[in-house]
């Protein structure tokens, strides 16, 4: 059986903990989040150790410091996912572009995939009429 140990930390302790573990070469397995029944968020940072997982949990904070500069894309993608799907904020995370479904498609291209068929028919008929 794989081991799993949970440690509660404050959001102020998060970055020093991540920096220490990164310096020791400990990989970040994943960042998970969920809401308690009273609506408070619970964000857990799961680090891979020999034989299992050490989980560092920040409870009740909807604004957390980003660790994307420490764990690079390995932390950036999970933070962006939690930001876009659960609405939590990571200070320092670049959210200028979306990870899940971009706001805008490239001019015209791809957009055709979501255009209703009747509008396409209208456009086609309009073009024929002009010609």
């Amino acid at each position: 059986m794989q081991t799993y140990h949970k440690h509660s930390i404050t959001k102020e302790e998060l970055r020093p903990t991540a920096e220490k573990l990164r310096a020791e070469g400990v990989p970040l397995a994943m960042i998970h989040a969920y809401f308690e029944d009273d609506g408070k968020p619970n964000v857990s940072y799961e680090f891979e150790v020999k034989g299992g997982i050490e989980s560092y949990v920040v409870e009740g904070e909807s604004v957390l410091p980003s660790i994307a500069d420490i764990y690079d894309l390995g932390a950036e993608w999970p933070e962006r996912e939690i930001n876009e799907l659960m609405g939590l904020t990571f200070e320092g995370l670049d959210v200028s572009k979306r990870l899940f479904l971009p706001d805008t498609m490239l001019e015209g291209q791809g957009q055709i995939l979501v255009t209703p068929m009747d509008e396409l028919i209208k456009k086609a008929h309009g073009k024929e009429a002009k010609e």
Binding site: Q2, Y4, A29, M30, H32, A33, Y34, S44, E46, E48, I53, S55
Partner: peptide, 28 residues
Amino acid sequence: YMVRHEAPRGQLCYKLVTNGTEYTKRVS
């Protein structure tokens, strides 16, 4: 609990939070 399995493409992570009922509180 969080478990890892070496799926064909690599490490698969399942985080499960339960509340003592037959329903799961969170599956990540």
